[in-house]
């Protein structure tokens, strides 16, 4: 579970987040929606400790992680798939996965096999350099690399970016499945509100750094004004 409390972040004079507060329960997907520059990525980076907040608290399972180093937050069970996936291109698929497993207390061979089973395409390409992977395969690898450490919390930053619609749909199904089987707390940042809301249980809408809506995904999806003003979804 993640609870964000009164969180503010400044970039120099620019306020990136203003007194943001919400809760993301365990075993559920919480979508974080909003336009470009709404502060979605900043929110995830602050949770991971890459950005230091000006004020506020971030509780992960009742433990405030503000001020803790990024690598230690990761070791506490927070998996973060960053914007642009963060696959290390110069390494092979397997090396990327091994990196993910290094900091966790898992049996490497078992964990690798499990991920290859979950994402079969990765098993086929395990010795390949990541620069040869397609966008969808990279997204799979990035997720597998986060999951291999058995995280309790998964932060996903725009996983659908640059993917074809069918690939996106499949990805969303995978995320929903994962959340259920692994009892994960998923924070899903998306610009593609429509596909995110389809699988999310809850949704938080950010606008210029502030929370403008926070509730059940179905309610947010049903709110005509929200959709028109903040999510850019044209009513069909």
């Amino acid at each position: 579970m993640i609870r964000v409390d009164n969180l503010s972040v400044n970039y120099g004079a620019v306020r990136a987040l203003r007194e943001v507060g919400f809760e993301a329960p365990s075993g559920q997907i919480t979508a974080v929606l909003g336009a470009n520059g709404a502060g979605k990525t900043t929110l995830l980076r602050t949770i991971s400790g890459l950005v230091k907040p000006r004020q506020g608290a971030i509780y992960i399972d009742e433990f405030d992680v503000v001020g803790i180093a990024t690598e230690n937050i990761a070791r506490r069970g927070v998996g973060h798939v960053p914007e642009g996936r963060g696959v290390i291109e110069e390494l092979t698929v397997e090396e990327n996965l091994r990196l993910g497993a290094l900091s966790a207390q898992v049996n490497l061979t078992d964990a690798l096999n499990e991920e290859y089973e979950r994402f079969q395409v990765l098993g086929e390409r395990r010795k390949r350099h990541c620069s040869t992977l397609s966008g969808g395969e990279r997204q799979m690898l990035a997720m597998a690399r986060a999951l291999i450490a058995r995280p309790r919390v998964l932060l996903l930053d725009e996983p659908s970016l640059g993917l074809a619609p069918q690939v996106t749909a499949q990805l969303m199904r995978t995320i929903a499945q994962l959340c259920e089987t692994e009892n994960l707390t998923v924070l899903l940042v998306e610009q593609n509100a429509k596909s995110a809301l389809r699988i999310a249980h809850r949704a938080v809408v950010l606008h210029l750094g502030s929370v403008v809506a926070n509730g059940a995904a179905a309610d947010v999806a049903a709110d005509e004004d929200l959709r028109r003003y903040y999510l850019g979804v044209v009513t069909s």
Partner: peptide, 14 residues
């Protein structure tokens, strides 16, 4: 990994 992608490495707990 630390040399190639320091930030990603930190996110992985390195």
């Amino acid at each position: 990994a630390s040399a190639l992608a320091p930030e990603v490495s930190r996110l992985l707990g390195i």
